[in-house]
Nucleic acid binder design. Structure first.
Lengths: 209, 209
DNA sequence: TAGATTGTTAATCGATTAACAATC
DNA sequence: TAGATTGTTAATCGATTAACAATC
């Protein structure tokens, strides 16, 4: 690790590098140069080398990069080898769809439990994950110390639920509520998935003018 | 409409402006200045004025902006008043979760039908939307001319399904497959929702180093 | 060794912020 | 009218691209 302040633009490109390197590795490709990777990804070789230089020196002059080695390095930078623990808070349609479909493990996350208020759901299992009563949060979190909460609760309780989780020690939020959350507590991180914003940018681009 | 080339950075901020103005309007606020809006949103007044100037002149010196008027203008720029038609292709967990939870109407979209290959799903309704056989696409699309397809099919058939829809005339794709789609056909637009990329950026930011 | 390709420094480009005349 | 705030031009900042010495 080299740089202190890596820009958000660089960070947001890392997962894409990780994905491409993963695919190349699966295809059995052993080495790649920044120029051929750039061609595949539709970006410049300069950008790739500049981005990587934020974190260290991973290549070799005259050779390029070892695909599996670079994939592992970027995975390490992203923290996929940390076995972060995650819980799903709100086991409605969206929460259950994520549990059933999203491969948390592939991103290095260990999904430990889901929480809901609905008596119909409490006590059941979704995709092998137990759904617990929301009232259990106060017991569960100090015991299991999850790193991230997937927030899939109704908008009306989004901020109050986040506050409750922050008080209990959760610092990472994967926020699907479409509410912009805030906190004054240090080191709390919100990653928002704003479906509506995403669809509206598509709407803009297909709108004839 | 003024500018030809509005940068992606500006376009991606528009939905957020739209959201904030919507909230202000709901709260009964009639006028707002760029500086007080900027303060609320955590951005500079300059940026707001610069962004808006890409599309026209919506304010008044000494007064600021009429909230409802500006909201409507940005809505128009984004195309929410176009009643774009949308179909969901792939009615698995994620497709059904979107149909049940996502307010397509609030973004100006009219959800017309869902499609799947599963006999268990074909013929049923999800959230008031009929689930049709994928084989019906060839009949349905020329007839209803949907503007956007929500792509929630398995990764293995993502590109081939996209190609099929493009051949039938679909030009907008809200892509949840985590596969990067391509097309040589003009005016085809892909808006990717990369869950894994999003979670990995969160992983990066909570990883102690 | 010769060719290829890195990591890094310098140049360019674009986006954000500041300043201010115009004017409601 | 005086104060406030716009739209726009200029200045600054940061990110991307180009160039190249170092070296495998």
């Amino acid at each position: 690790m080299k740089k202190q302040n890596v820009s958000d633009a660089v960070i947001r490109r890392l997962p894409r590098y990780y994905r491409y390197l993963h695919d190349l590795h699966r295809k059995g490709i052993v080495r790649i140069s920044s120029s051929s990777l750039g061609e595949k990804m539709g970006i410049t070789a300069s950008q790739i080398r500049q981005d990587l230089s934020c974190f260290g020196e991973f290549g070799q002059q005259g050779y390029g990069y070892n695909v599996e080695e670079l994939r592992a390095e970027i995975g390490h930078i992203l923290g996929v080898d940390r076995q972060h623990r995650v819980i799903v808070v709100g086991a409605g349609n969206l929460g259950r769809a994520l549990i059933n479909n999203f491969r948390f493990h592939d991103s290095g996350f260990l999904l430990e439990a889901a929480f809901d208020v609905s008596p119909n759901l409490i006590g059941t299992e979704v995709g092998g994950v137990p759904v617990l009563n929301m009232t259990e949060l106060e017991r569960f979190i100090p015991e299991h110390r999850p790193d991230v909460a997937v927030l899939t609760v109704p908008q009306a309780v989004a901020q109050s639920t986040a506050n409750r989780l922050i008080d209990l020690g959760v610092r990472g939020f994967w926020n699907f509520t479409n509410v912009e959350l805030t906190s004054t507590v240090e080191n709390v991180r919100f990653e928002d998935v704003h479906f509506a914003d995403s669809l509206l940018t598509l709407s803009y681009r297909i709108t004839a003018r």
